[in-house]
Every structure is written in structure tokens, then in C-alpha cells.
């Protein structure tokens, strides 16, 4: 449903990303992982239509993206900046639904439903600054869910919460998105997280970022923070991704396990 063809972007003479090619199928959860400064956010912004890439094309359902596409939502890392402090959680979640042409009643009903799914039905009237970081990011996720996008972009969504909340939110995202059949592109610098959350892990190189690895994650579902992470396959895959992120040449180990690179 999403295809990036030779996507590149320069800021002046600085090349942030270079000829990124990627295909994401409907319903897939793809994690993009890379070292800091690999142009992950530039990539996400290009897909979301927030910046116009200087090279290549973004195709969504076969159509080139021009401006912010319909049926797309973004969850940013910085919830405290992306939620509106003058609005209650409910108002924050229902605001984007104006784009769906729903009346106030229907917007609020949909927003309540989404808040319920992230376990915040009791906090609908609260303001973001009255909530903990984890709660605020739940509101952001609820806002994206209520909008019912076909493609959900997440930019380091769990980067600003504590470790325990992080695990909760990872599971929440997996659960809720599987329920909605949403396609997710999650950007992270956390190797563990990419393997745990993704159906596929795409590794970007240091700037200019380009795809240096594309690994299918074959782990039994539903995933579990303890069991999944102790599986041999998880540990192996995490090591492979880790090497790719650090720019160490992949090798075939004694088990014959290898990494496909492009």
C-alpha cells in the first residue's frame, strides 16, 4: 500500500536520506531502525507530506503523495508538544475527526471509544498537563486510532516514556492495531523495540540514510514482553539488526543464519 521509490532529501547541501526504496504491504507492521542522524524523521515527514522530498516519490495505494495524504495519521515522540494543552483529552482526540465530516456527537462518541481502547475512558475530561507522560502518549495514540487511518506513522512514539510504560505502550499498539488491521510504519532507534514490535525490520544507514537491511521477523504471536524476548530467534535477530545499525558487516554464523542486505 505504501511504496517509496528512490526517495531522497537534501537540506541545502546536507543529504539526509538517499535513494530509499521500500514497499510496505497492507496490514504490515514495519519498523525502521537506524543510528541517530540517519534521516528517520526526514523519511517520516516525507511520507506524511510535511516536507516535499527533493528526490524520488512516495506512492500511497499507487498514487503519488502530494501534501498530507488522507487516511494517514502520525504519532510523534513529543506528546507534550503535539497534544493541544488548551483542549481536554476528548477534544484532542476528536479534533482530527472534523476531517471525516462527522457531527459533534459522532466525533465525541468515536473519540470516547478510542480513549476506551487505550484505557483512558476515565480521563476524557482531563487536560494533557494534568496527565503523566505515558497517559499523554496514550491520548496521542487514541487520537490516531479514532481517525482510523489506513497508514499509521509513528516517530519514536515511546522514546519519551519510562521503560515500563514503554513496554505497556508497545503491547497496546500491537493489540489495538491488529484489531483495526492498520498498516504501521514505526520509526525507532531502539533495536529491541524494532524486533519486538515489527513484522519486518528495515535498517537505515548513517546519513545519508539508505536501506541497508530488510529482515522479516518470524516470531510467534501474540508477542509477550518476557517470553518473546527470551526466544532464541528474537535474540539472534536482535543481534543481526544491532550489527547492521552499527554498520558491522553481517556474517553467517555457525547456525547458518544470515542476513539479507541490499
Amino acid at each position: 500500500m505504501l511504496e517509496l521509490v528512490d526517495l531522497g532529501h537534501n537540506y541545502g547541501s546536507y543529504r539526509a536520506i538517499d535513494r530509499v526504496n521500500l514497499k510496505v504491504a497492507q496490514g504490515e507492521v514495519v519498523c525502521i531502525v537506524g543510528p541517530s542522524g540517519c534521516g528517520k524523521s526526514t523519511l517520516l515527514r516525507s511520507i506524511a507530506g510535511l516536507i516535499k522530498p527533493t528526490g524520488g516519490t512516495v506512492l500511497l495505494d499507487g498514487k503519488p503523495v502530494d501534501g498530507s495524504p488522507e487516511n494517514l495519521a502520525v504519532v510523534f515522540q513529543d506528546y507534550s508538544r503535539s497534544l493541544y494543552p488548551w483542549m481536554s483529552a476528548l477534544a484532542n482526540v476528536s479534533l482530527p475527526l472534523r476531517r471525516r465530516g462527522l457531527d459533534k456527537k459522532k466525533r465525541e462518541a468515536a473519540a470516547m471509544n478510542a480513549l476506551d481502547q487505550v484505557g483512558l475512558s476515565g480521563a476524557a475530561a482531563k487536560y494533557p498537563w494534568e496527565m503523566s507522560g505515558g497517559m499523554q502518549q496514550r491520548v496521542s495514540i487514541a487520537r490516531a486510532l479514532a481517525y482510523q487511518p489506513k497508514l499509521l506513522l509513528m516517530d519514536e512514539p515511546f522514546g519519551s516514556v519510562d521503560a515500563q510504560t514503554r513496554e505497556e505502550l508497545e503491547d497496546l499498539t500491537l493489540r489495538v492495531c491488529a484489531h483495526h488491521g492498520m498498516t504501521i510504519l514505526l520509526i525507532t532507534h531502539d533495536v529491541d523495540e524494532s524486533v519486538y514490535v515489527g513484522d519486518r525490520v528495515v535498517v537505515l544507514s548513517k546519513a545519508p540514510g539508505t536501506v541497508v537491511g530488510d529482515l522479516p521477523v518470524q516470531l510467534p504471536g501474540p508477542r509477550d514482553q518476557i517470553h518473546t524476548r527470551e526466544l532464541e530467534a528474537f535474540v539472534r535477530l536482535r543481534a543481526e539488526v544491532g550489527r547492521l545499525v552499527r554498520g558491522i558487516t553481517p556474517y553467517r554464523n555457525t547456525h547458518g543464519y544470515g542476513v539479507e542486505t541490499r
Binding site: 488522507e70 495519521a73 508538544r81 503535539s82 493541544y84 506513522l153
Partner: peptide, 22 residues
Amino acid sequence: DPLAKETLRSFGFGPASVAYRV
């Protein structure tokens, strides 16, 4: 905050809506 504006833009809101709502 630029991110506050980008958030609304990413949901497909135009410049007039962003001005009025953010």
C-alpha cells in the same frame, strides 16, 4: 510550537484550519 502545527497538518488540515485551531 511548529510540531503542534505539523500535527494538524499531518491529519490533512489546511493552512486556514491550522491558523484558526492551533
